[in-house]
Design a protein around this nucleic acid. Structure first.
Length: 417
RNA sequence: GGAGGGGUGGUCGAGUGGUUAAUGGCAGCAGACUGUAAAUCUGCCGGCGAGAGUCUACGUAGGUUCGAAUCCUACCCCCUCCA
């Protein structure tokens, strides 16, 4: 049925594997085929960058723009003051106004490589729901908005049920999250004539609440479209590594590490990822699927995603770095390569290899760094270090640089100052 | 309100006075093999410490004891049944 869509955007989205669920796909398709629309995706503002886990809906948003539709990126500056109920545990620090400001700006930057923002035609626009949520007055809100939310409907939301069933802390505060998220849709529908919300399938409940709410209030048809929630072939959550999330902003995840993430994906995920995360024509992807050299396909995947996110220049730098790291090439200077700086006076003759691994964040604790050395996985300039008390000397640095690694793949340069 | 069951390390889950920093599974890290993949095998897997060792941990707070995750008391939270 994927190919039976009338609109070009849904046809391509379906072929590439972006579509999971929709409220009314036929009508949406008809509407899309008819004329350009405005759509949005939302994200919370709990971090200074988005990460690979957000990338599927982002790529879909991009696809819509490519097909002439107008994308809005909504940042949850207001809703993040409450917190998504899918969070666990009691201790959730309320974000300060200042932190939210910073996060909002960071998320704006995260979107930039994927969405063209501006004032013309179908240029995208960044919105922040704090703009309207901060101004809400309780009584009018409950009266005008609250009455459109049947209690049974709210209680049936998965995010709510899950909280209640698992006895996780859940107060009226968090309970309001889906309502406010639904309200966002109304604001965007009225302000921006937005008629579609996209998001990950874990957001289905929240998105549908918004759709129902907007229909009720405005008596017009709006739509929901979700993307499949990606898990990698080994069943774990997409985009997580031992180091944490793979961030989209270069200052949170070096392009080198970003590239490595894609270079190292499971064989079984390659063709799926090529469809979703690159813009290679489907025939080319099909050709890559039949190649006997799957590593070639992985490199193309890594190259295309890195170039899209960080630019061609960064990709070139990554190639140099990869060559240096894995094939003993020349060490080069670049902010695209993970590097950290230490002070010669305070380090040489003073601190140990253990300190260095901590400083380079290849180990979280000194114990972990020690175990790494004892297990033979700690490398200094490509040589496995066996002495955990090894004190750093000038001889360990050539031209002021050293290379340390945890295992064969987690590497970082140390620059002496 | 009453009766019973339960809260253990990232997670699941053993353990009911003393070689218990706490069996085991999962997750994670490293080594071997390989293709910077998967699978498999091996080692590691609370903090600090070169080591001896030391500190912190079994819902919270006290207590008993030479010694407690294990016993007692109070409190908090959860589950099941009754009202």
């Amino acid at each position: 049925m994927g190919s039976s869509f009338k609109s070009s955007v849904l046809r391509e989205a379906a072929e590439r594997g972006f579509i999971y669920q929709s409220t009314d796909i036929e009508q949406l398709d008809a509407r899309l085929a008819q004329s350009p629309i405005t759509l949005y995706m939302g994200s919370d503002a709990t971090a200074e960058s988005l990460h690979i886990g957000h990338l599927v809906p982002i790529m879909l948003l991009r696809l819509f723009q490519k097909h002439g539709h107008r994308p809005l990126a909504l940042v949850g500056g207001g809703t993040s003051k409450i917190g998504d109920p899918s969070w666990r545990n009691t201790a959730r620090p309320m974000l300060s106004e200042e932190a939210l400001q910073k996060n909002t700006e960071g998320i704006r930057l995260s979107y930039r490589p994927y969405i063209r923002f501006g004032d013309k035609n179908n240029d995208g626009k960044i919105m922040n729901n704090a703009a309207w949520l901060d101004k809400l007055a309780y009584i009018p809100f409950v009266r005008d908005v609250g009455r459109h939310f049947p209690m049974g409907r709210l209680l049936s939301l998965d995010s709510v049920k899950q909280k209640l069933n698992n006895n996780l802390p859940f107060s009226f505060l968090e309970f309001n999250y889906p309502i406010l998220q639904a309200y966002d849709f109304l604001e965007l529908a009225q302000q921006e004539n937005c008629i579609l919300q996209i998001g990950g399938s874990d957001q289905w409940g929240n998105i549908v609440s918004g759709v129902e709410f907007v229909r009720r209030v405005t008596q017009t048809e709006v739509f929901a479209l979700t993307t499949p929630l990606l898990t990698t072939a080994d069943g774990s959550k997409m985009g997580k590594t031992g180091q944490g999330a793979v961030w989209l902003r270069a200052d949170f995840c070096a392009p080198f590490d970003f590239w490595q993430y894609w270079r190292n994906v499971d064989d079984r995920d390659v063709s799926k990822f090529l469809r979703l995360f690159t813009e290679l024509p489907l025939e080319e992807i099909a050709a890559l699927e039949t190649t006997e050299d799957i590593n070639e396909a992985k490199i193309i995947l890594a190259d295309r995603t890195t170039a899209l996110t960080h630019g061609e220049e960064a990709l070139q730098a990554v190639h140099h770095a990869v060559h240096a790291f894995f094939h003993g090439g020349e060490v080069i200077d670049s902010h695209h390569v993970p590097t950290f700086v230490i002070d010669a006076d305070t380090w040489l003759g003073m601190k140990t290899i253990i300190d260095l691994f901590i400083e380079g964040r290849l180990a979280q604790t000194r114990g972990e760094a020690r175990r790494l050395v004892r297990g033979g996985g700690a490398y200094l300039n490509d040589v496995s270090v066996s002495d955990e008390t090894l004190v750093l000397q000038e001889k360990h640095f050539s031209k002021g640089k050293a290379k340390i690694a945890a295992g064969k793949k987690r590497l970082i340069y140390v620059q002496l100052r």
